[in-house]
Each structure stands twice: as C-alpha cells, then as structure tokens.
Amino acid sequence: MSFERRREVGDAIEVDEVGIEYGIHGEFRLRSAYQPIFAPRGRFLHAVAVEALIEPHRAGRPVAPRAFFDSVAAPDRLFVETMCRVLHLRNYRNIGVDGLDLFFNYNPLINDHRGRALAEIRLMTRHLSDLGLTPAMLVCEITEQAADDALLTRLVREIRRHGIRIAIDDFGTGHSTEQRVGMLNPDIVKIDGTWFSDFCRHAAAERFFRPLVSTLHDRGARVLVEGIENATHLRVALDGGADLLQGYYLARPALAGTVFEEEPLHTDALLGRDAKVIPLFG
C-alpha cells in the first residue's frame, strides 16, 4: 500500500464525540461492530473472541452490509476494505474487554497483486502495538476462496509468519473445501451458517456432523460454527464437538463503545428454550 493510499484512508476516518472512529465513503458512514464468539467450557459458553464487522449507516439509519458493499465501485473496493480493517483495529480498544481475540476479514481477490498485498500485511502488523494489540490476538478470516492458489498460499504464509492465525470462512460452500483446508492448513475452520442450518434439518444431523468435525480436528484445525440461530443449531454443534460458536441466538453484533456483559451463558438454559436472542450487550 502506497503512502498516498494510507493518507487517503486516514483522511476518510473521523472521530465521534465519545472517541469512536468511523469511516466516510460517499453518503455512507461506516461503523465497527463486534460479534462475540464463544467456547464451550463445561455447562457454560464463555466469550473468547469477537468478529469485527462493518455496520454501514446512511442518513442516520443502518443499512444492510451487502447493500453497501454491492454499491462500492470496483476501483474503490481496496480502499474501502483497507479502511474497514483500520477501523476495526483502532476501535477494538472501545469494546471494553481485555483478552478477547479479534477476527477480521481479508478478501485476497480485492488486492490480488502479490507485492501490494504483502506490503499491506507488513504495514498492518507494524502498528499493532500502538493499538494495544498483538499478532497472537488476531485471526485473519480468508473470506474469498476463488483466489489463485499460489497467491493465496503465499499470503497465508506471510500472515502466519507475522504471528497472526488463519481461519477459512464459509466451509461447506464454494471453494472452501477439505482440499483448500489441506493446502492452507488453517488454525480455524468456520462452518458456513447457511450450510449448517440446512444440515440441521436432517434427523441424523448430530450423527453425521461429528465425523466432519473429527476430520478437521485431525488436520489440526479448530472448528467454529457460525449462524447459531436456535437451540437445535446449538445442540448439533455442541454434540458434534465444535470448539467455537457464533450466532444471533448467542449474541448479536454490537457497535464499538457498547457496554460488554461478560457473564458466561448457561448451555442448559439455551438448549431448553425456544429460539430467542440472548443479549450479551446492554
């Protein structure tokens, strides 16, 4: 990333009255939101990480992220993705909880020039300590699996060399397959939420999900199930041996600056009630 590009990203970021940073792109205001990720421990689920997400606003009202990103012109996509990542890293200190890992998205198709992509990764890691972060706290989610295999392998190697862990997103769909897992050796595999929801409709879902989790464990990866939206999803994920859990049934994304409730969630209560969001932020 050139100096000119970095300067432009900084010019597009403002700070609100309480110190939360937000981005400006056209008529949109881009705000960081963080969704908790839980690990089962005994009969409780403990928040161990957050995934950074962008919540676009237009005329003071939230807009669906897909609607915003679909509106971004191709020449501006690298700029917008870079700005989003900068916002997430800078705003992490405003979630009010220490010690949680931070998942952030990285789409290698948006920056598919190897030299620029590697320079961007090095630049990002160089300034982490200024933000109260360490590479060991970060998990880079590879969000687009259609990238060239050679480029993707080189990028993953560079990211990992800097101490950042790798997650493959949307496993079960598109290019996110066991073959790609074998090639990249990710630290974490995220099971696609839509695929998992469809899978859970089968009567023997628990019985068939456990072998998949075991296979991924044998490859050295932890398994994160996203899209947990009801008690059935949670039961299948827990019975299957998933390591990490994420979804609206457990907690919705919340904007940076919202007070974080650190109490663990009781699995017995979650499994015994109808699909209902358990608010983790108040």
Rank of each mutant, 00 (worst) to 15 (best):
V181H: 01
R201D: 11
V213Q: 05
S71E: 06
L212D: 08
G132R: 04
E55S: 11
I20L: 06
F281W: 13
F44G: 09
G42T: 05
M137I: 04
A269W: 09
T232R: 15
A73M: 07
P56C: 00
I159F: 03
H57E: 15
V213Y: 01
V189Q: 10
R90P: 11
H25S: 09
H127I: 00
A231M: 02
R219N: 13
V18D: 13
P253W: 00
R273G: 05
F199W: 01
G96Q: 09
E262Y: 06
V181C: 03
A269Y: 10
F3S: 13
Q246I: 04
D70G: 03
N185Y: 11
D169G: 03
G227H: 02
I278E: 15
L216A: 08
L131P: 04
E17H: 09
P108C: 01
A251H: 00
E81I: 02
H266N: 14
L102E: 12
L133R: 09
R210P: 13
K190A: 10
T173C: 09
V236P: 12
T258F: 01
P211Q: 02
A67W: 04
G163F: 01
P40A: 07
A256W: 04
L102I: 09
G220R: 05
V9I: 12
I95E: 04
T258G: 07
R58T: 06
R160W: 05
I20H: 08
D76G: 10
V9A: 03
P186D: 05
R85K: 07
H88F: 11
N230W: 00
N91Y: 00
S214R: 12
P36I: 05
S176D: 02
F68C: 05
H175Y: 15
P65A: 00
E4C: 03
L87Q: 00
V213I: 06
A49C: 05
Y92W: 11
L238C: 06
T215Y: 10
P211S: 00
L271G: 10
M183A: 15
S197R: 14
R61D: 12
R58M: 05
E261Y: 06
G163N: 08
R165P: 14
P211N: 02
F260Y: 10
R29D: 13
R222F: 10
R219V: 05
H217G: 09
C200V: 01
D268G: 07
R154Y: 12
S176T: 07
P36C: 07
S32E: 04
V181N: 04
Y106M: 13
R7K: 11
A74R: 15
I278A: 12
L87N: 02
R61N: 10
R160M: 07
A254D: 10
G174I: 00
G42S: 03
I142L: 06
L212T: 11
H57L: 05
R122P: 09
